[in-house]
Nucleic acid binder design. Sequence first.
DNA 1: CGCCGCTATTCAGTGATACTATGTACCAGT
DNA 2: ACTGGTACATAGTATCACTGAATAGCGGCG
Lengths: 109, 109
Amino acid sequence: MAKQMTEMLRGTLEGIVLAILSVGPAYGYVITARLREQGLSDIAEGTVYAVLVRFEQKGLVDVEKIPSEKGPPRKVYSLNAQGREYLEEFWRTWSFLAERLEQLHEGGK
Amino acid sequence: MAKQMTEMLRGTLEGIVLAILSVGPAYGYVITARLREQGLSDIAEGTVYAVLVRFEQKGLVDVEKIPSEKGPPRKVYSLNAQGREYLEEFWRTWSFLAERLEQLHEGGK
DNA sequence: CGCCGCTATTCAGTGATACTATGTACCAGT
DNA sequence: ACTGGTACATAGTATCACTGAATAGCGGCG
């Protein structure tokens, strides 16, 4: 992966995963798959699981263990009220930053 | 500063400073001042200098020491060819990520 | 003169987080 | 039994922004 992308994902990956969860409950494996579909193909599985563990520790998600037809049981995460709030905060922060960067990008042309 | 902002600046702060330098040569102190004008008021001075040192090590900038009328001499940084290339790469990475996030943001509403 | 305030840079130590590189485990089809 | 897809977990590493200082030159004020 581009080195720049790696660093840029810090802080945004959390928001991305949170946004995916805001659509509906999901578990690590499908989240990873969805990221790959989105073109974020180089995000390691382990990274996603680490993010989910952090969400759980911060109390942003509810967790439910559900048996899978094929493979080990899934840990299904769903966003709770606190998580939704955190996501909104994320969007505010991101929007602010994106605006500044947009200005700089326009100005630099 | 918001905790989220701190992490989100990773990888983007580099681009922001690079973008400021692309307008014209500048030194740490004024770059910090310009960031504050932009509303990025909580970026520590020390952080900006660290970024500049990294740029120098990566060979993205040319450095010139110029005496100041008031205070110690300034280290004036100007973007070189490699730096300009790096900045373009940054914009590509940023645009890609911003698009994905925009999609997720729209989709989540 | 001595102190303050502005200009200007530097650095040691800390914390958060994404990566690499594995390892574990379950099931189906051949 | 073996392969391949599903699903989760983790130890160790590197990067980078922050905090909180220290250092230094200069002008003005009492």
